[in-house]
């Protein structure tokens, strides 16, 4: 009798011990998975600083950031053309993409009937799923010759072509985020506006859009992030020459495409190669800034 009770007890104890160790194991697996992301970010940040900073210091930070000539092969490392091109390309894409994207979002959220909205929305998600190399390919084969003919240029691969491709690429994220924000506007606001004798259009622009402004701002920042980090699609349409972006028809090279196009040629261990890592560091800092801005907007949204 006593023996049986003792056996039962040890059995229960064993079961509990097993359960506890499974709990412990699972918890630690979760933890490890969580660590992967954190560790990657830390590793990349540290690696970029270690590999990018020395070259920047050797060249001189001012000469590097504000030098207007880049000629890696011959030891001239000024990345101002790349920085300005990245700004111009991103700015141009935002300038066209934000109005188009936000208006599309307004249409989807407030105007379009259900069936039409479904069609447009699936087209938008399809657009988001197209690999960037395909954007580049189509841009190269269709857009570049069109730009060349339309403006009678010697080459259609230039800043304008890159802006057009970037614009199309950032549309899905702008549309999705802005539409979600507009849908979240309480319908009481819109009813109040209509009850005051405002039209549907006045209501959308003067009540719904301002009420969704933090979401729309988030959409814009996401678009900026996407555009400034893009390399594959624009390397194929931008001309890839280290020019200052003097006008829309200048063949240009972006921060991203400068790294991608020269990494294979620069000798390992040379200042040229190391300076490419410095470009990556600059790009990384820009993207960090954008993320900080994004977090601020998201935080404001939660509080407001």
């Amino acid at each position: 009798m006593a023996q049986d009770r003792h056996n039962a007890q040890t059995k229960a104890q064993k079961a509990r011990r097993l359960r506890d160790s499974v709990e412990w194991l699972v918890k630690n697996i979760f933890f490890l998975c969580g660590i992967v992301a954190v560790a990657s970010v830390l590793f990349i940040s540290v690696y970029l600083v270690i590999s990018g900073l020395p070259a920047m210091l050797e060249i001189g930070v001012t000469d590097f950031l504000f030098g207007d000539t880049w000629d890696g092969k011959n030891g001239v490392y000024g990345i101002l053309p790349f920085i300005l091109t990245s700004f111009a390309g991103t700015g141009g894409a935002i300038l066209i993409g934000v109005p188009v994207g936000v208006l599309t979002a307004m249409f989807l959220a407030k105007v379009a009937n259900h069936r039409l909205a479904v069609v447009i929305r699936s087209a938008v998600s399809l657009l988001a799923g197209i690999p960037s190399v395909v954007y580049g390919l189509v841009g190269m084969v269709v857009l570049v010759p069109t730009v060349q003919k339309a403006f009678n240029l010697s080459s259609g691969a230039n800043l304008l072509a890159a802006i057009v491709v970037l614009t199309v690429m950032i549309l899905p994220s702008i549309i999705n985020v802005a539409e979600t924000a507009l849908r979240a506007v309480p319908k009481e606001y819109e009813e109040a506006s209509l009850a005051l004798g405002a039209t549907h259009t006045e209501t959308i622009f003067r009540v719904s859009l301002p009420a969704a402004r933090s979401g729309v701002a988030t959409a814009i920042v996401l678009g900026v992030g996407r555009a400034i980090g893009e390399a594959m699609a624009i390397i194929m349409v931008s001309g890839n020459v280290a020019n200052m972006p003097e006008n829309l028809f200048t063949p240009v090279r972006f921060l991203t495409t400068a790294i991608a196009s020269e990494m294979n040629y620069a000798t390992v261990g040379s200042l040229w190669r190391e300076s490419l890592f410095s470009i990556a560091l600059v790009l990384f800092l820009f993207i960090m800034l954008i993320n900080v801005a994004l977090n601020l907007f998201v935080k404001n949204k939660k509080e407001g």
């Binding site: 309480p186 009481e188 606001y189 009813e191 109040a192 506006s193 209509l194 009850a195 005051l196 004798g197 009540v207 301002p210 009420a211």
Partner: peptide, 14 residues
């Protein structure tokens, strides 16, 4: 709606 105004159940200031 300009001439016939409405106040809703739940206060809904913009």
């Amino acid at each position: 709606r300009r001439h016939v105004g409405m106040v809703f159940q739940k206060p809904n200031p913009f």
